[in-house]
């Protein structure tokens, strides 16, 4: 995520994370987490996420009804690329950084053909692309 942000923020691309429900609260790797009990609790855990991952991408919290999250598909790790006209250009249920890179390269190159951008982001060797 941050590599994409570093590459495209200066080319008119905004990055935003919607913090949603904890899908694996209390499970083996996450014994200290529980389902959100209030908006304040949810915000507290969202702030913990920012600190844990050293996030520079803006993290925002949906309200407890999660209507906005539900309206997008209600899945835990979705990704959407929206162009400046407000049209959905790409979506997926997991972050495939190479695909997002390719879509953004196409969008920003179309904005400024004199400054073309090539996809360069790779997750090969990281073990996973999330």
């Amino acid at each position: 995520m941050h590599e994409l942000q570093d590459k495209y923020a200066a080319r008119g691309v905004e990055f935003l994370t919607m913090y949603v429900r904890e899908p694996h609260a209390g499970e083996r790797g996450f014994p200290g987490y529980r389902d959100h009990e209030s908006f304040e609790h949810k915000m507290e855990v969202a702030r913990e996420l920012v600190a844990l991952k050293d996030m520079t991408i803006t993290v925002g919290v949906d309200d407890m009804s999660q209507e906005q999250h539900a309206g997008l598909g209600n899945l835990p790790n979705m990704v959407f690329v929206v162009d400046r006209a407000g049209t959905l250009a790409y979506s997926n249920t997991w972050l495939h950084a190479e695909e997002v890179d390719a879509v953004l390269a196409r969008l920003v190159t179309a904005d400024e053909p004199s400054r073309p951008v090539q996809p360069t982001v790779t997750t090969r060797g990281l073990g996973t692309d999330i």
């Binding site: 935003l16 949603v20 855990v45 996420l49 835990p76 790790n77 990704v79 690329v81 929206v82």
Partner: peptide, 9 residues
């Protein structure tokens, strides 16, 4: 343009 991720810890 914007990229929206959804996620949690």
């Amino acid at each position: 343009h914007f990229v929206l991720f959804t996620g949690a810890i």
